[in-house]
Design a protein around this nucleic acid. Structure first.
Lengths: 350, 350
DNA sequence: TCCCCGATTTAGATCGATCTAGTTCCTACG
DNA sequence: CGTAGGAACTAGATCGATCTAAATCGGGGA
């Protein structure tokens, strides 16, 4: 509620100061500020000079209050330290800034509870809309309760838990997960691999389930069986993926390749393999998902599915801006295509 | 000025709605919201029920207007896609969120002109203060003009151009640059290297000059000469560093090791070496600066100077919050220590 | 009975902008 | 000369909260 702290603000010059300073009314100054054609050219220049002289700074909050509008958008991501989300955020901020909006940042750390708290706090600042990449296990009902039924929302990357119709009016920007991993799996099969694992991520996120489905589909289409221990789960971070690597080698049918949940996981696997004396791209084939900047630069360069996270960020912002322009438009679902980028990590079976 | 776009906001329930809904005055509801001890327990519970019933959302902007306070802080970084800044931003947001502030994001892309525009736009949203990591070539005079003399500012990572006394009242959080690279250089010397380069960064950033100075100091102390072509400049990104790598090998006294401006540059150098058939950590020693998450995970793991960017973010936020609590306190300069983390990339001279 | 007191509650002004509904001042025209 | 019409400007209400100053109420003491 109203219990949070806040900072005192130095007395700033206001519309009234300007008005008094050059002998016109507040209303006139306001018209000048907004470039209205109703003011006389001579008055306009007089006011503009005074604005400069007094170093006037527009108070957007006051204007928004009166106009019942907002000039900010809340961006809630799982973890800014993940390059995929960092690039996404950079794209969002770029597009929003261009449109005159400012980005309110929030970060959930993949916790649904923190997501609730963060949403609650951001909402009080009155954003015009929200771009949300849901935390694992985030429920539609809770998010809906936190943001209200009328807040424009763009869901990115994942669906929420719970009945879909509750939030069917929200726009969504999803990645082409299933066809993506299918493509990657087919690529590995074409390179001669038969025992292929699916590595990383947790099955309670919709994106993980979809990516697994694409993998399973390709395996089935090729008539290849999937051994149970070829599905290794992990938190989608490099660290945890490196830690989980040994699980791949515990059964007898040892895989020769792995389709990974994302690039962070793939890079962790590269490291985990290295620790076992295996070199990714020579002894073991690896594919990722996202094509973060690092993927092209790592050793070996990573075969992955390009999602162009920065472009996705811009796109999410555009979708939200379009929604603000036309609140009545039917909800859109955009599925961003992904593209297989073949680099050295997906070596042929030797 | 007032020319930017904005979004319509759905009619929300206000203090007055609550007051009308349970037969008390607006003032009483306001007191309840802020947990004042002045209201009777029975009225309090009645009001709280009504708040819940109507799904009331506190309008912080309106409160801030009346109270002349702010509950947001602007964070302006060079490039969110750089993991160093992404982690820094995550730390800032974490600490600010804990204190009940929200983060307004801005990104300059290392351009002083964009920095001006971004600051201008953020300022209009009335942040209580600014955390600024200046773009290369950013001038004190311009920043001062954009944010005004009374805005609390924390400078991070770099100094501004122009006379220091103009902005002597701002707090600063700097890294211990010179001792850091000195340490790294001494480490390489101890491992037997004599021909050591300083790689990456542009000399017009204060942080670059300081890091170079630390390197030069260590070289001189060891009685080692520095060949001119051992100083290779580049944009502090991986891509550009990889591109600049060949310049190291153009003279006759080819270096056997390099102290890099930061981790991004170091990882770029690792890649550049790889493209020449050289393996960092075996054929050529490399050190970085920052210790981004990737440094421990790369191949080879990177010897670097740990700056704990996330902790630095939290710290920058704390410094700003302290300033807001006591605007009269003398300006502080905090120099965060850095620590040499030895990993495999800084191999002994073979 | 009257006044004072503490505990509660509230009317109305206020923050800095915008918006509505005018007003003022010209010039032109019947 | 009266007035219609347009250009330029403005008084005052308003957005949703907070704050000040004062009102209300019930009980206790003189």
């Amino acid at each position: 509620m109203a219990t949070e702290s806040s900072a005192p603000v130095h007395r700033k010059t206001t519309l009234s100061d300007i008005a008094a300073g050059c002998g016109v009314s507040r209303a006139t100054v306001s018209l000048v500020l907004r470039g209205s054609p109703l003011v006389n050219q001579r008055t306009r220049t007089r006011v503009e000079e005074e604005l400069r002289r007094q170093g006037y700074v527009y108070n957007r909050a006051a204007a928004n209050l009166r106009r019942r509008t907002s000039s900010s958008i809340a961006l809630v991501v799982n973890e800014l330290a993940n390059p995929f989300f960092a690039e996404f955020a950079a794209g969002v901020d770029e597009a929003l800034g261009k449109a005159g909006f400012v980005t309110l940042l929030g970060s959930t750390g993949e916790s649904a509870a923190r997501e609730q708290a963060v949403l609650g706090s951001l909402i009080e600042h009155g954003p015009g809309g929200i771009i949300l990449s849901p935390a694992e296990g985030s429920e539609a009902r809770d998010v809906l309760a936190a943001v209200g039924a009328h807040m424009p929302v763009v869901l990115f990357n994942r669906e929420l838990g719970g009945p879909a119709r509750q939030y069917a009016h929200w726009d969504r920007l999803m990645l082409d997960n299933q066809p993506g991993t299918r493509l990657a799996t087919e690529h590995l099969i074409a390179r001669g691999h038969r025992r292929i694992a699916f590595f990383g991520g947790h099955d309670d996120a919709s994106s993980t389930r979809e990516r697994y489905a694409g993998y399973a589909q390709a395996m089935q289409a090729a008539g290849l069986p999937i051994a149970p221990h070829w599905r290794v789960q992990s938190t989608p971070t490099r660290m945890d993926a490196a830690r989980a690597t040994p699980a791949l080698f515990e059964g007898d049918a040892v895989p020769t390749a792995a389709v990974c949940y994302n690039d962070a996981v793939a890079l962790g696997l590269v490291l985990g393999l290295h620790q076992r004396g295996l070199q990714a791209g020579r002894d073991f084939a690896v594919t990722g998902f996202d094509d973060i900047a690092e993927a092209a630069m790592s050793v070996p360069p990573l075969t992955t599915l390009s999602t162009a996270p920065r472009a996705r960020g811009r796109q999410a912002a555009e979708i939200l801006l379009a929604r603000l322009r036309d609140p009545q438009a039917p909800a859109s679902t955009v599925i961003a295509p992904v593209e297989l980028v073949v680099r050295e990590s997906s070596c042929p079976l030797s």
